[in-house]
Simulated assay, not measured.
Amino acid sequence: MLRYLTLAIIVFSASEAAAQSPDCVNAMTQADMNICADRDYARADAELNRIYKQVRETLKPDAKATQLLITAQRQWIGFRDATCGLEAYPNTGGSMYGMVLTTCKTGLTDARTKDLTGILER
């Protein structure tokens, strides 16, 4: 009976720890660093999508410009994925792979957002 109680306490403690958000400023474990990198990328991707929609709306009256934007964005996604895949490649199979891949995507996504923001400012 004591074993089951001990096991229940361990499982509850582990699930409580997992439910808490890591401190991304002071992340110490690879798992926390991976979670934080994923959050950073989600933020960057959401901002890129917001700006992309604004640019698309701005260009909407010009069908050719809109098509060029769509083509450029699709090609940029391929570039981002290939570039970051190459950057993360040395970490394939390791616990850092996801973090390196996602951190690369975040950086390129932030840069792309800045580029598209420039279109809005013209």
Rank of each mutant, 00 (worst) to 15 (best):
I70H: 08
M96G: 02
W76F: 06
P90K: 03
L68C: 08
I70M: 09
I70F: 11
V100T: 00
T103L: 07
G107C: 10
I77H: 00
L86C: 06
G78T: 14
G93H: 09
T92V: 11
A88L: 08
T102Q: 05
L108T: 14
Y97Q: 09
K105T: 05
C84G: 03
G107A: 14
I77S: 02
T92Y: 12
M96A: 12
G85N: 06
S95L: 09
M96W: 10
F79P: 07
M99K: 12
W76K: 03
I77L: 00
Y89E: 06
T83V: 06
Q75E: 14
D81A: 10
E87S: 01
C84V: 04
G94C: 07
E87K: 00
M99G: 07
M99E: 09
L69S: 04
C104M: 04
M99Y: 03
G94Q: 14
L86N: 13
L69H: 05
A88R: 08
L108E: 07
I70S: 14
A88N: 03
L101A: 05
G94S: 12
A88V: 05
V100Y: 05
K105I: 03
L68G: 04
G94D: 08
C84W: 05
S95C: 02
G107P: 11
M99A: 07
T106I: 03
M99R: 15
Q75R: 13
S95D: 04
